[in-house]
Design a protein around this nucleic acid. Structure first.
Lengths: 255, 255
DNA sequence: TAGTGGTCTAGACCACATA
DNA sequence: ATGTGGTCTAGACCACTAG
């Protein structure tokens, strides 16, 4: 399910040898991930057919299929019968709500609208640096934005990104863009968010936050601390969201 | 992934006919779920081998394998190489943390301890009845309990269960039991929780809750509204948890 | 040694999309 | 008509478990 880096993974595809540390299809999977990471196929693009990949890697179609199956289950690839297999993208509407879990209590989920309040470079505080696997003081981009749902401010996000990856990111660039933030990141900065880990807590609104979210001071807010990862489990975003949950909630499914 | 009820599902397993509404392996899957639901194999028990099931259903081993794969992915079955395939159970430690998402900010997840405050029968309020797909006034069992982590009260749960399914459930029965609640439900009441849907919000503690959780009145608490489902997407539990998130948090993974 | 799930293959046919 | 993924089969062999 996850994007494991679970073995040395030789390139030689020998059948059932025993000297190989991972099953063939896992090796194929890692080769495909490597191609995705290196940008051989961009988000939204068609990848080669199963038969073509089978020839390339000198394995049977069934083995490629199993590798692709796992990548599709992990939302890295999307299969479309009759058309082919595509690299998943944060631009397709289907992917919108994978990382946006705040939905209205009643009615349909509505596309969110962003207002960017701040965007500036700064030296990473210790805690942020740790989470991004950087050194304290390394350059990071800091973004503060308000998320509006049905015209009401609902979420205040503070976002930290590694400066090295997001060089051209500015207030103007953000203001011009409309759509999911992760879409922008993948199109303009070659950084694709694959998975994220979140910690949720309830906190009281301080004066500044209360003003921005138009709620009374000390109102209970849902705090969502997120670290997002790209290929190879590299952390590439720290996000701290404060959500008003009077008319919205965070939805989750347990299996 | 989910336990779909996605077709009329004939029992006849004819190969690639076209008159059949679901692929063979989906039909097999539904037949397996039916056997689980009817208790042919109990939680923790070994189910027949793939070859045996293939003979029973008159399909190839590969088709059974695909059906079992999906059921294992949905956590209904557990495969153990060399031993066989087992019915998943809430008793095995592996399953504990699937439905308990509250973990300490630091240190390892510790087994939770329950103190039951109340357990009584009552007529279902409208909202609870709706969520349990009962009629208002139908009998339900109401349970209130405190969850302790490392000796501290952390979660106050209010739980509603269909009275028809939980006839013998009493305070004494609960007090005697140690372990996960869903383990008790599956062993003693033949009701297995398969999946759940949650809504999270931040709220302020009222006087009663504050006293029970040993926090100041109006402290921000994490409210977790859960509906749990058994086989066939039958709702069988409504749970409303209030969590102190000063030293703990709700953890979640996004893919 | 025997039985189980796990991997891999090769080939057939179906369902869907496009030209 | 062609090419894609989706399903199904049959058979071989591997890895793990237990008697």
């Amino acid at each position: 399910m996850t994007v494991d880096v679970d073995s040395p993974a030789e390139s030689g595809a020998r059948r059932g040898s025993g000297a190989v540390f991972a099953p063939l299809y896992r090796q194929i999977k890692q080769l495909l991930v490597a191609s995705l990471e290196q940008g051989e196929w961009k988000p939204g693009e068609l990848i080669p057919s199963e038969l073509e990949l089978a020839h390339r890697f000198q394995v049977s179609q069934g083995t490629v299929r199993k590798a692709v199956d796992e990548l599709a289950a992990a939302n890295l690839l999307v299969r479309r019968q009759g058309k082919g297999t595509f690299v998943a993208t944060h631009h397709e509407p289907r992917a919108q709500f994978r990382f946006l879990r705040i939905v209205p209590d009643a009615g349909e989920a509505v596309p969110a609208e962003s207002r960017f309040l701040e965007c500036r470079r700064l030296k990473a505080p210790a805690e942020i640096a740790r989470q991004l696997q950087l050194k304290t003081g390394d350059p990071v981009v800091y973004v503060r934005r308000l998320l509006f749902l049905s015209g009401k401010p609902v979420v205040l996000d503070d976002i930290w990104l590694p400066g090295a990856l997001f060089k051209g990111l500015t207030s103007e660039r953000l203001a011009r863009y409309h759509g999911p933030l992760y879409g922008l990141f993948e199109s303009e900065f070659d950084t694709r968010m694959i998975r994220a880990q979140e910690q949720l807590r309830a906190v009281a609104a301080d004066a500044t936050v209360a003003r921005l979210l138009q709620v009374p001071k000390d109102s209970p807010l849902l705090l969502v601390d997120r670290v997002s990862f790209s290929y190879g489990d590299r952390p590439v975003e720290v996000r701290r969201g404060l959500c008003v949950t009077t008319a919205h909630h965070y939805r989750n499914a347990l299996y």
